[in-house]
């Protein structure tokens, strides 16, 4: 796309500007414990430290003090059935430091599951009914052993 095709930068040229950035960022829980003013972001792989800082300052208007980033290697694991090795995708993590007065804790997204359980109650009820009917269907000829499966009253 022409809007993603940037001219080569030569010294003295005006600074390159991104008008429609297609970078994404998401807040993740820190793998290791961090100070309260440090927030861990997972970001697009193409982003540099400067990009991350500009992104947060310009789009979200956040006061960024420092940015450190690393590429976390995806875990290797064995496929359960056939045993071949699978590698999860790498991810780029950015540890962004905010001013020392800031205390950010990751919000508790699953405080109590009462609400969800209330909604799922009807589903569970119908599931139990289906189970019960299947059990009846399986045992319908239990008193007349040896009859073929299609034979029932």
């Amino acid at each position: 796309m022409s809007s993603r095709w940037y001219p080569l930068y030569q010294r003295g040229n005006p600074q390159l500007r991104v008008f429609l950035p297609n970078f994404w960022m998401k807040i993740v829980k820190t793998p290791n414990q961090q100070p309260e003013n440090v927030v861990c972001f997972e970001v697009s792989h193409q982003m540099t430290k400067y990009d991350i800082r500009q992104y947060l300052e310009k789009i979200y208007k956040l006061p960024v003090v420092a940015v450190r980033d690393r590429i976390a290697m995806g875990r290797f694991k064995r496929e359960e059935r056939n045993g071949y090795i699978i590698k999860e995708e790498d991810s780029k993590l950015a540890y962004v430091t905010f001013p020392k007065e800031v205390k950010f804790t990751y919000p508790d997204l699953f405080p109590e599951e009462n609400e969800t359980k209330k909604n799922l109650k009807d589903d569970e009820k119908s599931l139990d009914q289906a189970k019960e009917r299947f059990r009846e269907f399986c045992n319908r000829n239990s008193k007349r052993r040896g009859l073929p499966g299609w034979y029932s009253i």
Binding site: L62, P63, P99, V102, F104
Partner: peptide, 13 residues
């Protein structure tokens, strides 16, 4: 500033 940053970070949720 704490409240300010927290409000802005909650835009991610």
């Amino acid at each position: 500033i704490n409240e300010d940053v927290n409000n802005k970070l909650m835009e991610f949720f």
